[in-house]
Design a protein around this nucleic acid. Structure first.
Lengths: 189, 189
DNA sequence: CCCAGCATGTAACGAGTTACATGATTCG
DNA sequence: CGAATCATGTAACTCGTTACATGCTGGG
């Protein structure tokens, strides 16, 4: 039972889903391709954590709708109260930053402008989702029992971390432009 | 040639290192165990990106000191100017947050207090390193050519992201305490 | 005397990505 | 007519972790 498995079970505690649904819903929180999810769901079914029913559709291929079992629910309940392991981030930009002096001023600037626009896009995306959520439930997000509460917390987390990254990029870019205006530009004359 | 390989080459552009050194230096930026680094170094040597010399030591086992080749340097130069792929974060707390309503108020509080203290530790750690750096080079961190510049940028990134996470945890904890003071506590009377 | 740190490696396994494979519908 | 979305799966591969394996030094 790995983290991804608990992630899937966690989503299924809110209601039945297809593998495809799970992939979509999981995306913002934990990246995983369908090729990882489908076999894992089968394994979870073997062990009795979930069960599926086949739902025929008109004009569409059949669905396998998975529902969590009581065993699955109790496994999630046990998991969720255990301490969370620290987050792991793998960021190529960090490694590139470590050897920036090989890149030159323009490339460096491009690198950080790209990341800045990426972070701003994320910020806007999460902000929009948050607005949608506010409209959906008219400011009643702070009820701990409501399924909206978690979404509210997570959207705010997304905004926070995207903003802090954007701020860092802004700061780096301002440093780079100062440098270009002093040392770098002066030397090139 | 994967990201880890470029990370190692990036460090080696600053000077020769043993596999062990590389593992230590890489740690803050990209988690990798020695079991991943040693075979990768051997592969990089086969392809001519690095070369090693055996350095005997007194009272210690021999070292393999790796140095980057011209081929390796040009590979890094090409890599560093290419756009960085977006960061990937895997955080168990995010998945647990998604099904908080199964956890209960006390467990939830513990979960976020643990993450808060973790984030604060990281903040302090990076801040201390930053102070060390400032003392080391007396405020001259903003020279793009100096090896201190990258460290300066990265330490600030570390502080930024740790702070934003701590702020998020603080915010969640304040929400939880409000809830306990209103709905939750009121219901339990 | 045991533990932490330096120093290097391999083997087995689990996690994650990319590519292969299929097939219907809807929208531009 | 092609691209995107829904929908499911497998196979081959790379990436990453854990455990196995060794050996020496210095400090508590």
């Amino acid at each position: 039972m790995n983290t991804l498995a608990y992630g899937l079970l966690g989503i299924l505690t809110r209601g039945p889903c297809t593998g495809y649904d799970l992939m979509i819903k999981l995306q913002p929180f934990w990246e995983a391709k369908h090729s990882q999810i489908y076999p894992l769901l089968a394994r979870l079914e073997e062990r009795g954590y979930v069960a599926h029913t086949i739902v025929p559709q008109q004009n569409k291929p059949n669905k396998k709708v998975y529902a969590i079992s009581e065993q699955g629910r109790s496994a999630v309940r046990q998991w969720v109260v255990e301490p969370a392991s620290p987050p792991v981030t793998r960021d190529e930009l960090v490694l590139k930053t470590y050897c920036l002096w090989l890149a030159g001023a323009e490339s460096t600037l491009k690198l950080f402008q790209q990341r800045l626009s990426h972070s701003r896009q994320r910020m806007e995306h999460f902000s929009q989702r948050l607005e949608e959520l506010k409209k959906e439930c008219g400011g009643r997000m702070t009820d701990m029992d409501s399924p909206h509460f978690s979404r509210y917390l997570l959207l705010n987390k997304g905004i926070c971390s995207a903003r802090s990254q954007a701020e860092w990029c802004d700061w780096v870019i301002s440093l780079l432009k100062k440098e270009q205006g002093t040392n770098f530009f002066d030397h090139s004359i």
